[in-house]
């Protein structure tokens, strides 16, 4: 039933030169990369509130169960969280009786292959990147990897996330346990 269709964001569709022209070169590339690295660092350091603060007021964190989904609206989703729901998740994991948070648990993200897909005249950016996350829980290691698509809004305080789409390569595989926070 869950047929995989090629992603619309595939690199092949965007000639390299056009992509280059679409943004103003090194500055944007550098700023976007720094933003993505910093975002990953906040997750690994469990700075949940700082992580949530990276999202615009109407920002969404979305992980579809499969790449063909074009919207979270009315669709099953692994995550489809606005800032309010993200706050519930944060408060849950910070609660002293979040039993599943007691054991040793940590993650390590590596983000790369950062491509600035387009930059609007107002400085808003769509960027895609690849991530690899290793998670340790008690003595067990899991790996999650996939594609991030960030819709970033340029503000005077730097970028804010309007939409972060996470297409996890292993989204359809059976989960050994669950995902406690954002990937």
């Amino acid at each position: 039933m869950a047929k995989r269709t090629p992603k619309k964001t595939g690199a092949a569709k965007q000639p390299v030169r056009a992509a280059k022209r679409a943004h103003n070169g090194h500055d944007t590339q550098h700023a976007v990369e720094q933003f993505l690295y910093r975002q990953a660092e906040l997750l690994d350091e469990k700075r949940w509130q700082d992580y949530i603060d990276l999202f615009a007021e109407d920002g969404m964190y979305w992980m579809p169960p499969e790449p063909s989904h074009a919207t979270w609206d009315g669709m099953p989703a692994i995550f489809a969280e606005d800032k309010n729901l993200m706050t519930v998740r944060m408060k849950r994991v910070l609660h002293p009786d979040a039993w599943s948070q007691r054991p040793l648990w940590g993650t390590n993200h590596v983000v790369g292959n950062v491509v600035v897909e387009r930059e609007s005249p107002n400085g808003d950016v769509v960027a895609r990147s690849r991530f690899h996350m290793m998670e340790l829980r008690r003595d067990d290691v899991r790996h999650f990897a996939g594609l991030y698509i960030h819709h970033l809004k340029k503000t005077k305080d730097g970028y804010r996330i309007k939409l972060q789409r996470v297409d996890m390569t292993n989204a359809q595989a059976a989960y050994d346990y669950v995902l406690q926070v954002w990937v």
């Binding site: 992980m63 099953p76 989703a77 692994i78 995550f79 519930v88 998740r89 849950r92 979040a98 039993w99 599943s100 989960y175 346990y177 669950v178 995902l179 406690q180």
Partner: peptide, 9 residues
């Protein structure tokens, strides 16, 4: 869903 805030515990 796999990100369940209930079944996690």
């Amino acid at each position: 869903s796999p990100s369940t805030m209930i079944n996690a515990d």
